[in-house]
Amino acid sequence: MKSDLWVVIIVTVTFIGFLIGYSLPPLVETGLLTGKGGEQAEMTRELGKDMEQYYRDLQKDDE
């Protein structure tokens, strides 16, 4: 019975491990799990230079 229980434990831990791996990165990315005082990271308002140029080019195409 013991080895059977281990199979159940391994399968369960595998699924739970996947769920943790799936769910925790967003918490880290938003700063909720990185010791930043538990505050959610703010959205970046500034556009990168590449993106800015991309939008300028779009406008040029319209013209």
Binding site: I16, L19, I20, Y22, S23, L24, P25, P26, L27, T30, L32
Partner: peptide
Amino acid sequence: GLHMLVLQGARVK
């Protein structure tokens, strides 16, 4: 405890 943590992560995601 882990259940709360994982669900919160899924909600944020």
